[in-house]
Computed example of a mutant assay.
Amino acid sequence: MELLILVAAGLASGMLNAVAGGGTFISLPALIWLGVPPVSANATATFSALPGYLTGAWGFRRDMQAEGTLSLRAIVAIASIGSLIGALLLIVTPGEAFMAIVPWLLLLATTLFAFGPRILAAIRNRGGGPAGAGLSGTAILAVAIYGGYFNGGLGIMLLAAFGMIGYVNLHGMNGLKNVLSALLSMISSITFILAGLISWEHAVALSLSAALGGYLGATFSRRITRLDLLRLFITAVGAAMTVAFFLR
């Protein structure tokens, strides 16, 4: 039964992460329900999401292109620094404090994803274009620190940040989101492995199924024409998990 739960959670989380983010909304609760301590569960969920991010990025490889004022190289460098900072913060966070913070992080991620396009549209209607390099770099750094600390909602946060710094092609945003998510997860995972936080008995099944889910999700997502419905679905998943963690 435990193996079935892990495989199902991995498939679902891999598909969600590839499509628009929010996969850890499923894998993290599953790990906690199976008895993994909260901080270790978050570290394991982050590590297990990595294969899914890689296969998802491969599925979107033809859609990615640079937009906004920051080069892809600059985005990768800033995100790497932020991820390391976030991972180090998680290591020193007590389990009880982490569980108290999680609902608020989920709420923030879901809200930004839901209203990000409207915020960007308001900026453009007032005559503003993509954010400048300084503001764009700050936004990427903040999201990377968040992602290094808490993988839940990372894809949603990245999509919101991309939208605010000038990205408009959702499929291309998904591809870059998966590339950055893989990078952030890899840096964080190395830190978590060195700190002994990964629950390996759960990570293997979760990782393999997430890899398959990531590829399936990317393949399916590129056939979706109603992106507004896709955004609504991801927002609903985030809202449901936010409520569940507040009520826990």
Rank of each mutant, 00 (worst) to 15 (best):
M1S: 13
L4K: 05
A8Y: 00
L11A: 01
M15E: 00
N17K: 00
A18K: 08
V19R: 06
G21L: 09
G22N: 03
F25T: 10
P29E: 02
A30Y: 02
L31V: 06
L31K: 04
L31D: 06
W33Y: 13
L34N: 06
G35A: 04
V36N: 01
P37A: 11
S40F: 06
S40Y: 08
A41H: 08
A45C: 06
T46R: 02
T46P: 01
L50M: 13
L54G: 05
T55F: 14
G56Q: 07
A57W: 04
G59N: 05
G59M: 09
F60C: 06
F60D: 01
F60L: 05
D63H: 14
E67G: 07
L70R: 09
S71W: 08
L72N: 14
A74I: 00
V76L: 13
A79H: 08
G82V: 09
G82K: 09
P94N: 01
P94T: 02
A97W: 09
A97Q: 14
M99D: 11
L105E: 04
L107C: 13
A109M: 01
T110F: 01
T111L: 07
L112Y: 00
L112H: 00
F113K: 04
A114F: 12
P117N: 04
I123P: 00
G128P: 03
P130T: 00
G132L: 04
G132D: 15
A133P: 11
T138K: 09
I140G: 00
A144Q: 08
I145F: 10
Y146A: 03
Y146G: 03
G148P: 12
N151P: 09
G153C: 04
I156P: 02
I156Q: 14
M157H: 03
A160Q: 08
F162E: 09
V168K: 10
L170V: 15
N174L: 09
N178D: 07
N178Q: 12
A182Q: 06
S185Y: 04
S185R: 05
M186T: 15
M186L: 15
S188T: 09
S189Y: 06
I193K: 05
L194V: 14
A195K: 01
G196Y: 05
G196H: 07
L197M: 13
S199A: 15
S199H: 13
S199Y: 11
S199E: 11
S199L: 07
H202Q: 12
V204D: 02
A205Y: 11
S207Q: 04
L208N: 05
S209E: 02
A210L: 07
G213F: 07
G214F: 12
Y215P: 09
G217K: 01
A218V: 10
I224G: 03
L227M: 15
L229R: 14
L229Q: 13
L230P: 10
R231Q: 13
F233I: 12
T235R: 07
A236C: 11
A239R: 02
A239Y: 00
V243M: 10
F245V: 03
F245T: 11
R248N: 15
R248K: 15
